[in-house]
Nucleic acid binder design. Structure first.
Lengths: 218, 218
DNA sequence: CGCGGATTTGAACGGAGTCAATCCGCGTGG
DNA sequence: CCACGCGGATTGACTCCGTTCAAATCCGCG
């Protein structure tokens, strides 16, 4: 949480972001339906969030890495609508929401920041809707790789070389594809010289080539 | 905006929800990229919001009717990421956002309400992602009809009989389908005795039948 | 009353899904 | 330390749902 706060305000904020929680790979941070009372920021590792259906089908709604905020869906009804699982051993930091509300009444810059965070999540999801609703399989996967690449870059990691933390099935669920399709596309991208994909290891050889895949079929 | 506010607080609120705007059918309330400074609530008519792609493809992100709030995506960057068009002659009420922030610092109940509204939008979009990513065409359209039905009901209209305000193409864009597919499904639902669909007029004959369409294939 | 956009319907196609067989590699336990 | 087991990944063959292309019809609106 950056933003134009005074030193004093920052000290106040520090006072309530103390509690942390460790989650082992595969474990659940919270389940859909569980009561909401705090947001979480990722301090270490990465998580996925997913909404699920009566019949067992699930839709992955996001993959979350260092610094990202999860749990915003819980504010609305005081209960989470999605579940959150760790993709690897991870650690999150708790932000008790009612305290966050108290602080943000006192600190306008924080209040505005909270609003922007909520709104960003809406924008992110709109982007996903566009991806799910209008893109072809190839475009979806290319977008996905470029998005990951960008997020690693911002965190100071390599934009062109990284290790996926999620399975083909989870990628597929996120993109509205089956795992076999995801796998086949990785192979096709590799044959086309766009990437190297060996299981979870990914190296992007031609980011512009990936970008050009996104666009009208023609 | 209901919520547990005192009479005095309500009076304060009234003072800033005065400005209204009329939009004719097909006209635009705001464009993607335009600067954000206010939210809008629908007072009359209905609107659609859509995100669009460089290449012209568009994804309808929602249809909005009486009482619903639009523009929340603009908070994040002070610019709208989607555009809003009137589906019929409509009227919206402006809520200048910075004033809303001021008020909500002073009135905790309002502050919490704003948070819940933002969060509800996140939940709504998660639901759409599930729809777009995991449902088959038939399930998508059945969900869509049941959702509309429910929203009309809450507003005191008939849940079983209504007039669509959007075209087959707009429905298709919202559901991630082509307009021909939407049209064919309406016909199939009609043959199956689930609905009557004559152009924009819809009558739901068997809501439970529609509900049963939603679920694992077989 | 006539025009043009919206809708319906048909036929053929193709992209992604399904089913199935194999392969890989990581972690575990002997 | 190595062998084994098992979940994840790859690949192939075939299917099918939704798209595409095309034509006809409907209907609201000027």
């Amino acid at each position: 949480m950056p933003m134009g706060l005074t030193a004093d305000e920052l000290r106040q904020l520090d006072s309530f972001v103390d509690e942390r929680r460790r989650i082992k790979r595969g474990e659940r941070l919270y389940a859909a339906g569980s009561t909401f009372d705090a947001l979480f920021t990722v301090r270490l590792g990465s998580l996925k969030t997913a909404v699920l259906f009566e019949d067992g089908r699930e839709q992955v709604t996001g993959f979350h890495m260092l610094g990202e905020l999860i749990g915003l869906d819980g504010i609305s009804t005081e209960a989470h609508t999605c579940s959150a699982h760790a993709l690897e051993d991870s650690e999150v930091c708790l932000l008790p929401f009612s305290r966050l509300e108290d602080f943000s009444r006192r600190i306008p810059a924080l209040q505005h920041h909270v609003h922007r965070l909520l709104s960003s999540e809406i924008v992110r999801e709109q982007h996903n809707m566009l991806l799910l609703g209008t893109m072809r399989a190839e475009e979806k996967l290319a977008s996905f790789l470029l998005d990951l690449s960008d997020r690693y870059l911002r965190r100071g990691y390599s934009a062109s070389e990284f290790v996926l933390r999620m399975t083909r099935e989870e990628i597929g669920s996120f993109l509205g594809l089956k795992l076999e399709t995801v796998s086949r596309l990785f192979s096709r991208f590799q044959e086309a010289g766009l990437i190297i994909a060996q299981q979870k290891y990914i190296k992007i050889l031609d980011a512009n080539g990936l970008r050009q895949l996104i666009g009208p079929p023609d």
